[in-house]
């Protein structure tokens, strides 16, 4: 027993000292080695080389010096900075430097963060090989990579029908907020498909919310005409998100929808509708909001007071109109 204890102690101490010395030596060697070109600097270099010198051969030669990882990170920095012909030429140069094949290799072995980065870059590439990699990435082991692959395929206008994509992505990836970015990429060309997703009662709430969010982000209020009927039976999370989105962009056509949502069975939806009404601050909403001052839910009543202040203007609301049994004595309303 004693031998075992001493043996175990020796193993732990030796492992600790070994790891410690290894870390120090490794760091010292790294400090002495030539500094690897930082991706950000490389992007700057790329920018200067291409956009100022306009010398394709020089760019090819420079990119050939980069190791695969630097090339990948450089592309991630450089591509969002470039537009038009410069971007196209740079993408071609990155392709010639072997980015596609590096990315394919990374997608098999690299950790999640780098696979995600690969997917983002492959969205800009043109080769069939990169397309194949992205399609395979829709079934990647990490949900975030699957979403990134779908977004990149959408950027390349190569995304299969949404229902197929959702099936491949699986439920984990379908819960991501980044679906809004995916739907944005599909607009306006595949608007009808996005609207169908937003309306489909069989879609998961997060998918529908993301579709609505994308439509609103693109200032596409085409869902409003049918939102009035559709949102009645929608899950509370979807109806509440729709209300918030409408309020956030203050679309005047939304008033009728909000008036209806103010009477929704779910307190979450009523509260979101009240907040949206406050954002829009249209005088037509004053009466429907006042009716909600008697709401059974505390949170809704408090939101109504805030919304009425926004509709009527500061300090115009009579405190007696907003009585509540649980209001705290430090409320500024009391002071008003």
């Amino acid at each position: 027993m004693l031998d075992f204890l001493w043996g175990a102690t020796l193993v732990f101490v030796a492992a600790a000292v070994g790891m410690w010395l290894w870390a120090i030596v490794r760091r010292a060697l790294m400090a002495k080695a030539p500094v690897r070109q930082a991706p950000r600097k490389a992007a700057g270099l790329l920018w200067i080389l291409w956009c100022q010198a306009r010398d394709g051969a020089k760019l090819d030669a420079k990119l050939a010096e980069f190791d695969p990882r630097t090339l990948l990170e450089t592309a991630a920095y450089a591509l969002p900075l470039l537009t038009g012909a410069d971007r196209e030429s740079t993408i071609s140069a990155l392709g010639r430097a072997g980015l596609d094949s590096d990315a394919e290799r990374y997608m098999r072995r690299a950790p999640e963060g780098q696979r995600l980065l690969c997917c983002e870059i492959l969205g800009a590439m043109k080769s069939r090989r990169s397309l194949r990699v992205l399609r395979r990435a829709l079934k990647d082991r990490a949900p975030s990579v699957r979403v990134a692959a779908a977004i990149s395929l959408a950027q390349r206008q190569e995304l299969p029908p949404l229902q197929t994509v959702f099936r491949q992505m699986g439920p984990d990836a379908r819960g991501s907020s980044r679906l809004a970015q995916l739907f944005e990429e599909l607009l306006p060309d595949r608007q009808q498909e996005v609207i169908e997703v937003a309306r489909n009662p069989l879609s998961e709430p997060q998918v529908r919310i993301s579709a609505l969010q994308a439509l609103v982000l693109k200032s596409d209020f085409s869902f409003i005409p049918f939102a009035e009927s559709d949102l009645d039976g929608a899950p509370p999370a979807v109806a509440a998100a729709a209300a918030r989105l409408i309020g956030g962009y203050a679309d005047p056509r939304a008033i009728q929808i909000l008036v209806k949502l103010l009477k929704n069975d779910s307190a979450v939806v009523r509260r979101a509708a009240v907040e949206a009404a406050g954002e829009i601050a249209d005088p037509k909403l004053e009466v429907p909001l006042e009716e909600r001052l008697a709401d059974e839910d505390d949170l809704v009543r408090y939101s109504v007071v805030r919304a009425l202040q926004q509709v009527l203007g500061p300090n115009k609301l009579d405190p007696d109109r907003a009585t509540s049994p649980t209001r705290h004595e430090s409320s500024p309303l009391e002071a008003a």
């Binding site: 004693l2 102690t9 732990f12 600790a16 790891m19 290894w22």
Partner: peptide, 22 residues
């Protein structure tokens, strides 16, 4: 032996965390 093992494991875990961070 008891004291040495406790110290040894404590040291190992701390250095391993440092290595993980590094």
């Amino acid at each position: 032996a008891y004291v040495a093992l406790v110290f040894g494991i404590g040291m190992f875990v701390s250095i391993a965390s440092l290595l993980l961070a590094e």
